[in-house]
Design a protein around this nucleic acid. Structure first.
Lengths: 111, 111
DNA sequence: GCTTTGGTCAACCATTTGGTTGAATATGGA
DNA sequence: TCCATATTCAACCAAATGGTTGACCAAAGC
């Protein structure tokens, strides 16, 4: 009864986790590097990454002592299917998305 | 820093609330009628409806002593924009969505 | 071998969440 | 007017969430 939509949407409900996903959109990253821009302990980021992993939104692979995080956008598919059905939204162009992301990212201007 | 994406995704993270949205896709409903299929108090459903309302996913209008709930699919737009950017998902046809919904709705077969 | 670096684990804490119940507040109908 | 219906409110509860700290473990570097 609790589908994977639960975990995916719950994972997306946190701004830190969405920011992490946006960062990983650029490139794969090590855990420490993911954590760097946030004013938060490494352990906290580690937990967020675990939640994203369990939701299938990222994967983590350990090479040497470094654990690499990789975006897995396919996990968004079923959630996207679910959502789009409500509005018959037209496909979104990436320019709009890029602008949106930039207005959302708390990292560039920090606090 | 906590955007409306927080509230929208958090609202969508609960299966009861997603089921409610799916019900409202059919037609507007009174609170009592929304609650009917669930094995849960009316007060609990009322809370869920409040969360959906605050997320902008539904609106509620009181006519007489009955409060009508109405789907507001536009609230999904920004969330949809955010998500689609990750996968460049093609637009979803409604047939697929319908099938998906039916496989997800916990109400028909209950437990 | 030691020390540093990268990351997780465990225990803890405050807050939020999702549910309950019972009382309260309208409104509508007889 | 009196009663039933529709819905919320308030208090409470258990469990989950998001964060902290300090100890721990594994892999590199010297």
């Amino acid at each position: 009864m609790s589908s994977d939509l639960d975990t995916v949407f719950a994972a997306l409900a946190d701004p830190t986790r969405r920011a992490i996903l946006a960062m990983l959109l650029e490139d794969d990253m090590a855990v420490t590097d993911v954590a760097e821009p946030f004013e938060m302990s490494l352990a906290a980021i580690s937990k967020h990454l675990m939640i994203l992993t369990k939701a299938g939104l990222i994967s983590q692979e350990k090479r040497g002592r470094v654990k690499w995080c990789k975006l897995e956008p396919d996990a968004l598919r079923s959630a996207s299917v679910w959502m789009q059905g409500f509005g018959q939204f037209e496909p979104v162009n990436l320019d709009a998305f890029e602008r949106f992301l930039e207005s959302q990212l708390p990292l560039a201007d920090d606090t």
